[in-house]
């Protein structure tokens, strides 16, 4: 039996292609995703849509007032309570690499901004954080 004439073979090839396409759409920064879901998602929501101004959305960083270079300090030291009614607490237990992974997850996987935020950029910004406490 010639394989090319066998409809079952076509079917299998088709299913294999579908499998490939769906598995290729996985997140790029899976550690960042896991850290985001564990540390950020209960306030900023799993899809990063936030809740009104109370918990700002993180899925529209292109149009946000927040500068990308401010992100590492906000994640580590939190957000000043004078801006919002609620104070964001910092995630002081996260390493620079973990913070970097969260930022890359937000940029690439959530916002679709194709930008590799380098670890040097994260570390550089972390050295210049203003003490908010």
């Amino acid at each position: 039996m010639n394989m090319i004439q066998n409809p079952k073979a076509y079917c299998l090839v088709f299913l294999f292609l579908v499998y490939c396409l769906t598995s290729c759409s996985d997140v790029k920064y899976s550690q960042g995703e896991a850290l985001y879901l564990a540390n950020c998602s209960s306030c900023h929501m799993p899809e990063a849509g936030g809740v009104a101004k109370l918990y700002p959305a993180l899925n529209d960083l292109r149009n946000s007032d927040v500068k990308l270079d401010a992100l590492p300090c906000i994640i580590r030291y939190g957000q000043n309570k004078d801006i919002y009614s609620l104070e964001m607490e910092g995630l002081k237990n996260l390493s620079s690499i973990e913070i970097n992974n969260i930022i890359n997850y937000l940029l690439n996987d959530i916002n679709g901004i194709e930008l590799e935020y380098s670890i040097d950029r994260t570390k550089g910004n972390l050295q210049n954080c203003k003490d908010t406490d």
Partner: peptide, 16 residues
């Protein structure tokens, strides 16, 4: 409570 870090934000989203 406003400083609630766990379930409150998601409940507020549903209240909204």
């Amino acid at each position: 409570f406003t400083s609630c870090p766990s379930i409150c934000p998601i409940v507020k989203k549903q209240m909204l």
